[in-house]
Simulated scan of single mutants.
Amino acid sequence: MKRLLIIAFAMTSTAASLCVQAQTYQWKDANGRTIISDTPGPGSAKTSRSTGNPAPTPTPATEKAGEAVKAAPPPQQKSIADLNLEFKKRQQDAKEKADKDAKDQAARAENQENCERARRTLTALQNGQPMAQLNEKGESQLMDNSQREQEMERARRFVTEACR
């Protein structure tokens, strides 16, 4: 029982000494919210009261610094779970972006290859090189002039589409 009283007395005296040493201000803002701070409230505050030791007389430099602190909203503390969730979201976004970039690059490479193949085919057709097509039976058959013209027109359209 004596130990309990001694511990309670020690805690009370410690808390009392901390309150005496700290300079705190409490006031109500224009919205009626109670603000507790280590700097005095603005002149437009409804009520103001000081607890603890008297504050030193503010200088113009400390008044400007105090105004800057008051103007900035207090930083929001995020929980570890929120920070972890944000980190995982950033990782997922980066992975999705890398995958998208890889797909775009592969599509550009394939498009470039198709373009070069179509240009070579068009050049071969225009130079009059003998070319063959497979018929319905799967046999190779040389192209006649009308088939060559049709293939050249098809190759030109493909070159314009694939080689943008």
Rank of each mutant, 00 (worst) to 15 (best):
K28L: 12
M143H: 02
A109I: 13
A65T: 08
N111V: 06
L142P: 09
T57K: 10
A68K: 14
Q76R: 15
L85Q: 15
T57W: 05
R120S: 05
D29H: 06
P75T: 03
F9G: 10
Q26P: 00
I36A: 05
E110I: 08
G43H: 00
Q76D: 14
A68R: 11
A61F: 11
M11I: 12
V69D: 14
R117A: 13
N31G: 09
P54L: 03
R120F: 01
E136Q: 14
P58T: 06
G32A: 03
W27I: 03
K46V: 07
L122P: 01
L4G: 11
K97V: 07
A98S: 09
N127W: 04
D38R: 12
K64R: 11
P74Y: 04
A55F: 10
A45D: 07
Q91T: 00
S13N: 04
P54I: 01
L134N: 12
T62P: 04
A94K: 02
P130W: 03
I6S: 11
K97L: 14
I35T: 02
I7G: 02
T51A: 02
Y25P: 00
A106P: 07
G52S: 01
P74H: 07
Q76H: 14
Q129M: 09
E136K: 12
N111E: 15
A61L: 13
S37F: 06
G41N: 05
R120P: 00
E86R: 13
I7F: 06
A45M: 04
A61W: 06
S44M: 10
G41F: 04
S44D: 15
L142G: 00
R120M: 07
T51R: 05
A30L: 13
T62A: 12
A22I: 05
K78C: 09
P42I: 06
S48I: 03
Q141N: 04
A118K: 01
